[in-house]
């Protein structure tokens, strides 16, 4: 039962993230947590849609003036790819291949940082080119809150994965940390799904006006 028991690829269980009761609990608890997060983002989306293009005077920039597809498309690709690389990482986790898992997680983290960089550039662009800020209009508040909440999730996810990678760099996989890696990747997928909705609802629907 000892969580730190050493394994070989042969003795490593099929679903290491759910091989212990703690793992099973975490797995279920985290899914439920993501359910709550879904409602959280749903509330943010609803608010954004209600306040979209609500500006105090006509000279404020609207959604159709702001967004540029190429940049947002690039960001979408970066995040979608990072989701894929985290799947690879989990594949190697299940096969007890710690090194390859770490490598793919590293790539995931790099893609995540690239995404964050784009987002910071994007926000900066809106603020300086269009004077579209958090405090310029209700539209601005809703936009930065929705996309910013997502950005904060990305940041937290990155810090989490990095912390896990560093903490476990020396000791490899066991049944104690396998669920942790798995949950981090689940979180990462969730962030990705939310982004797909942001891309559709905020950017694509924003550009058609």
């Amino acid at each position: 039962m000892a969580a730190e028991e050493k394994f070989t690829p042969q003795t490593w269980p099929e679903s290491p993230e759910q091989a212990t009761l703690e793992g099973k609990n975490k797995f279920l608890g985290f899914w439920l947590f993501l359910g709550g997060e879904t409602v959280l983002f749903a509330s943010l989306f609803a608010t954004y849609l209600a306040l979209k293009d609500s500006v105090p005077s006509p000279d404020h920039a609207l959604a159709k003036d702001l967004f540029e597809l190429p940049l947002v498309f690039l960001m979408t690709m970066l995040l979608l790819t990072s989701s894929l690389t985290s799947v690879f990482a989990m594949y190697h986790m299940k096969n007890y291949n710690f090194k390859k898992m770490q490598t793919w997680l590293f790539i995931t983290v790099m893609l995540g940082f690239a995404f964050l960089g784009c987002e910071i550039y994007e926000f900066n662009h809106y603020v300086h080119e269009y004077e579209h800020t958090f405090t310029s209009s209700a539209f601005g508040s809703a936009f930065y809150t929705l996309v910013g909440f997502h950005g904060a999730h990305v940041t937290f996810g990155l810090l989490w994965i990095i912390a896990l990678m560093i903490r476990n760099a020396k000791r490899g996989l066991n049944l104690y940390n396998a669920p942790k890696f798995y949950l981090a990747s689940l979180y990462w997928h969730f962030i990705d799904v939310v982004w797909v909705f942001i891309f559709t609802v905020v950017y694509l629907m924003g550009m058609v006006g």
């Binding site: 306040l51 609500s54 500006v55 105090p56 405090t135 209009s137 209700a138 539209f139 601005g140 508040s141």
Partner: peptide, 18 residues
């Protein structure tokens, strides 16, 4: 919190809020 402490406009009608 954002409205009261950081100048956002979610509920401020003058800023387009509701």
């Amino acid at each position: 919190l954002f409205d009261r402490m950081f100048g956002a406009g979610f509920f401020d009608v003058a800023m387009g809020g509701n």
